[in-house]
């Protein structure tokens, strides 16, 4: 067995790098923040300087400190929401897809209802049901956001499970005597991972924006610091009209970068799970040199084969002859998933 290796394209590395920075600040943010984010004693309305890297607010608070402290709540809420939503979508989607029949019809209807419900309105209603003290709890906000965000993932998972259920390898695993739950989780499961990953990424992104919007609208307590409450205060004090761009740029940029990093990581998960996308971990330049197309062509699978070392004992009787990087036509091969262009 080869050891687990993270895919090494630049996109993925950038994604890991960005996300790890944000996760680092999620952990240490409140400790490394230069000032107390709620302290109002600085000169108001300063543009970025060495004293205040992201300037100060109209109320005389340090924006950088607010950003660092607020990172924790935003990310914790988003990941809690993402994980809960994915768990719900796995349960509902896999069951609907694998069991089928009446169960599928009922669950599909359920999914459709949640898809068409206006999420934000539902969120506002549900959030208001919680007592004031609970509304700041990341677990509570996360679960409520998950409640409106799981349906899309469930629908995609159901569709993917349906297409996998009748594949020959699923039947083959039954033939060799595999138990049902193992068939679902060990045979179908890994084939669903890219969908799960993209579903997780999508839901976390959704949760970042939704929790931000909730805070921005003042529906969650505005006294705690996250990127949403920062934007709330910025707009409440007309930062945009006053030209205080640094007040807005910080949280907006942070949200965009979190989204970018998750999307980049998703590419990598895709390549790891779908071996067809992994041309021997070659970079674009290396692929070009090897005469391989940079994008998978329809019906053609880029295949990277180990070149046999002449005289090496393992390869001594290789039937397949000297193999080099080759684009092998496998037009009749049903791809495990569509190759991403």
């Amino acid at each position: 067995m080869r050891r687990f290796r993270l895919p090494g394209t630049w996109k993925v590395r950038v994604g890991y790098f960005l996300l790890s920075i944000f996760i680092l600040f999620t952990v240490i943010g409140p400790w490394v923040a230069p000032y107390d984010p709620s302290y109002t004693g600085f000169t108001p309305d300063l543009s970025p300087s060495s004293q205040h890297l992201l300037g100060t607010t109209l109320l005389g608070q340090d924006v950088m400190s607010q950003l660092l402290v607020g990172c924790r709540e935003t990310l914790v809420v988003s990941f809690v929401a993402g994980v809960i939503a994915v768990v719900i979508s796995i349960i509902v989607g896999l069951t609907a897809g694998y069991v089928g029949g009446k169960t599928d019809e009922v669950l599909s209807l359920f999914i459709a209802v949640f898809l068409t419900l206006p999420g934000l309105v539902l969120l506002i209603v549900i959030i208001s049901l919680f007592p004031q003290g609970q509304q700041a709890n990341p677990l509570v906000i996360g679960s409520v956001v998950a409640l409106t965000g799981w349906a899309w993932g469930a629908k995609v998972l159901r569709a993917q499970t349906l297409s996998l259920r009748n594949r020959d390898f699923v039947e083959a695993s039954r033939i060799i005597g595999e138990r049902r739950w193992r068939t679902i989780f060990a045979e179908i499961g890994p084939n669903l991972l890219p969908v799960l990953a993209s579903s997780l990424v999508g839901t976390v992104l959704y949760a970042v924006s939704v929790s931000t919007v909730l805070a921005f609208l003042g529906l969650t307590p505005i006294t705690t610091w996250n990127w949403g409450t920062m934007l709330y205060w910025a707009f409440a004090n007309n930062a945009a009209l006053a030209g205080e761009w640094w007040w807005l740029a910080g949280p907006c940029l942070a949200i965009a970068l979190v989204g970018t990093s998750l999307a980049l990581i998703n590419f990598g998960i895709d390549e790891y799970i779908n071996p067809r996308l992994r041309v021997g971990n070659l970079s674009n330049r290396e692929r070009k040199r090897a005469g391989l197309s940079r994008r998978p062509k329809l019906g053609f699978t880029p295949v990277h084969r180990v070149t046999p070392v002449i005289g090496a004992p393992v390869m001594a009787g290789a039937q397949t002859g000297p193999e080099v990087l080759a684009t092998e036509a496998t037009a009749s091969t049903p791809a495990p998933r569509e190759d991403h262009p």
Partner: peptide, 21 residues
């Protein structure tokens, strides 16, 4: 029973899990 009676399926490309070695 599975131990005694085994079935080989028609399509070799589809009957082996693509994500496994």
């Amino acid at each position: 029973y599975a131990n005694e009676v085994q079935l080989v399926l028609q399509d070799p490309f589809a009957s082996i899990n693509p994500v496994r070695r």
